[in-house]
Nucleic acid binder design. Structure first.
Lengths: 173, 173
DNA sequence: GACAAAATCACCCGAACGGATGAGCCGCCC
DNA sequence: GGGCGGCTCATCCGTTCGGGTGATTTTGTC
């Protein structure tokens, strides 16, 4: 909605800039053509100018689209208090039961099953497939299957991306 | 030359493109100047070309095409007949670039160098070694070295653990 | 200038991961 | 009871990751 309008405004502004630049060029043509070698110069200027314009456009098209990273504060707060164990315990793998519970609506939105969420929770703790398998009393193959399904549902390619996405979506703490 | 190859590859390519374009322009000058109005045309071409170059550069500097993928809820939960979830807004959860700064005391506490922190920040976004290398304009080998050092300093074995530890330690957002 | 730390790059190799695919079992629902 | 979805396990194969080692260059400091 807004993004689209901004996009059109961007294109419009871009077109105006282009037109203005052509006018400027036409003016420069009669102003500098006496210097006979100035053409290269202003083409250079055009190149530099539009490179910066391109960079600006590139930034505009990527960064601000983010704006609505809706993170459910309650979901975060319910799942959060587990990080108080600071850098003391290196590889301690405690209880299998994660103290936090997911937001059911979020799980429904992504179509994530309960078992998959358990895998996701263990995954976010930095466990390997084998460790997750031990935690959930299944084989590593099963963990891999769950993870593959999770990757599809979260639309990611790697486990680290899955953790990041799940975290920013409020699926895990 | 080896060491600087990756660092200055972009600038080099840019310079070469600029030079090539100037040569092309010189050729076009004597080819099309009879048409008297062709100058505007090729300045336009220059503008468009370097706009794309700028966009490319801009994308290079920000995010590696994580594609902000909007998860289609209906496509995900194919067999979910309850279509009461019509909202598709909050699923746009891209992996935003961390513009945040680390806590210097924490970095000192772990002995993490600035460059290593940069790698860590990119790592927490779920990027692969190759993507991190592109972001930081180094080779994948360098990324691997930084990561190995990070693993030692964070006392972890895997990248997911490193992210978890760094997050709970407050090293990254 | 010497020195230390950081940063960079390279190679090898085993382990872990990810994709694709198939299959069997179970509970639920029409 | 047949279909469906979830859970489980398996195999194969290619890619990525991590560990180890060594090397050079840059940078900051004394």
């Amino acid at each position: 909605m807004k993004a689209k309008r901004n996009r059109y405004a961007l294109l419009l502004g871009y077109g105006l800039a282009l037109g203005g630049l052509l006018s400027l060029m036409a003016w420069l043509k009669y102003r500098f053509l006496v210097a006979d070698h100035a053409t290269e110069l202003y083409v250079l200027l055009v190149a530099l100018l539009f490179t910066t314009v391109g960079i600006w456009v590139g930034l505009r098209f990527t960064a601000p689209v983010v704006s609505t990273a809706v993170v459910d504060t309650e979901a975060v707060s319910t799942a959060a208090p587990e990080a108080n164990f600071q850098q003391k315990v290196p590889l301690e793998v405690p209880l299998a039961a994660p103290a936090c519970r997911p937001q059911l609506e979020l799980l429904d939105q992504y179509g994530i099953s309960p078992r998959e969420w358990e895998v996701l929770a263990q995954l976010s703790r930095g466990l390997s497939n084998e460790e997750i398998a031990e935690q959930l009393f299944v084989s590593t193959n099963t963990v891999k299957t769950h993870l593959s399904n999770l990757y599809v549902k979260l639309d990611v390619k790697r486990r680290t991306q899955a953790v990041e996405r799940a975290r920013s979506a409020g699926l895990i703490g």
